[in-house]
Amino acid sequence: MRREIPMIVAFVAGVIIILEFFVPALRSVAAQIQKWYLVVIAFAILVGAFNLLRINYMKIRRRRADWPYSIPLIAGLFAMAIIGIGWGIEEGTVFDWLFNYLIFPMSSTVFALLAFFVASAAYRAFRARTVDATLLLVAAVVVMLGQVPIGSAWVPPWWPDWLVFLTPDWLKDRIMDIFNTAGQRAILIGASLGVVSTSLRILLGIERSYLGEE
């Protein structure tokens, strides 16, 4: 029953949500299922927080690699939860202060490190080894130049219109609007078909990985 009940719930809920598009009478039932979903997912956040706590607690207890980092993680989790629930999260509260002056700069800093690693990776990996790699390299350089004002800074105001195709701005727009959009659309359609097929497999009980099965 541990397997059958979740499969029946997934089938019934999924079929009602699909049929709702075609059968207006099912709209109120579908709306009710959506409300339940919002309640369930709110509890899933609690489960997620509990899981994070459990994994990091075990890491500290068993002295696994990098266990000291788990201490500030657990301390932060409790501190933010207690401060937020106890004194609120609106503007001017301690929670807001901690968010603005701790979480905000720390998260932004970690993300900003990406610029350094991108530069290093580009230096080591972006080589014109083959025709494909050369095309990718040239497209990347043109887009990088076209994306920033300095790319077109060298173009004088008297630059003739018939030579506009030589400016990084123009080339970047063509790469993005034609080649990129065509590729992205193909990926989008492919991924959407994949979603439809996976959804059908879940509804029919063929795909059961969400139950923890292989």
């Binding site: 991108v118 530069a119 580009a122 230096y123 972006f126 130049l145 920033v148 004002p149 300095i150």
Partner: peptide, 20 residues
């Protein structure tokens, strides 16, 4: 910040050219 991004892009492009 766009000025900083401009120069950073330019530097990365120069890196790519030198590496090649």
């Amino acid at each position: 910040r766009m000025d900083a991004q401009s120069i950073a892009h330019l530097v990365i492009i120069l890196f790519i050219i030198f590496a090649n």
